[in-house]
Design a protein around this nucleic acid. Structure first.
Lengths: 116, 116
DNA sequence: ACGAAACATGCATATATTGTAATATATGAG
DNA sequence: CTCATATATTACAATATATGCATGTTTCGT
């Protein structure tokens, strides 16, 4: 019953979740679920500085969660796996069930759910 | 189109994923999916020091992902939402599709999938 | 009351992540 | 070639998280 390499696998999974553990990165993913977007478009939608977008995209690229494709002068980003949408959806259901502290958050979650 | 309080919600989601972003915590959750367990049992299964288990359980408790119930001298932990199982399963599928670097990891993931 | 077992917490130090700002690279227009 | 625009990288202080180990707390048996 060798169980040694399991540790490596868990570290890998942890790295994946860590990549999701940032407000801006989550928002980027939620936007990319609907539609591929350029850095510029992401920047406008997020309302943050350009370097912030690029560096968070770098994190998501580094974990193979998104991929960028050069299109002339701009770069269009896309999810590498549509299951990311499903993952975020299950996460939302979990929040909805138990993890909510304030009424405000709860209302927002319910609105999000209806929008999909 | 007020979009202001969204930031708070994203921070909340980020905190949730951050709670999953740790090898020991992931392992704990995978064990709890199958069966509720005491700290002692988790410690044995994980092969780590007791304070480590309690510490990581504290993180999971703090994000409402697990809950502990005193049973005499011991404390039995359980997932607060069975959807956690589904979440980890979707994550595993994503790894399986794209996020795998080494052959070793890939083989392990496939074994995990078959076991469920 | 005493001691042992099962958990939980605290703390010091090491390490990693973040925010911010400056700077670099690449592409296409003219 | 030069310039403007789009994107990427770097540097670094501030903050957050992890790790290892000592010490509390609660419960129960005797």
């Amino acid at each position: 019953m060798t169980d040694v390499p399991t540790e490596e696998l868990q570290a890998f999974k942890a790295a994946f979740f860590r990549a999701l553990a940032h407000p801006v990165r989550i928002r980027i993913l939620e936007l990319l679920i609907r539609k591929d977007l350029s850095v510029q478009e992401l920047q406008d939608a997020l309302g943050v500085d350009q370097p912030v977008v690029s560096q968070q995209l770098a994190v998501l690229r580094g974990t193979n969660i998104v991929a960028g494709k050069k299109e002339g002068v701009s770069v269009r980003y896309a999810l590498r796996d549509p299951l990311i949408a499903q993952l975020l959806d299950v996460a939302r259901q979990i929040f909805n069930n138990h993890l909510v502290g304030t009424q405000d958050l709860l209302r927002q979650l319910q609105r999000e759910g209806r929008r999909r």
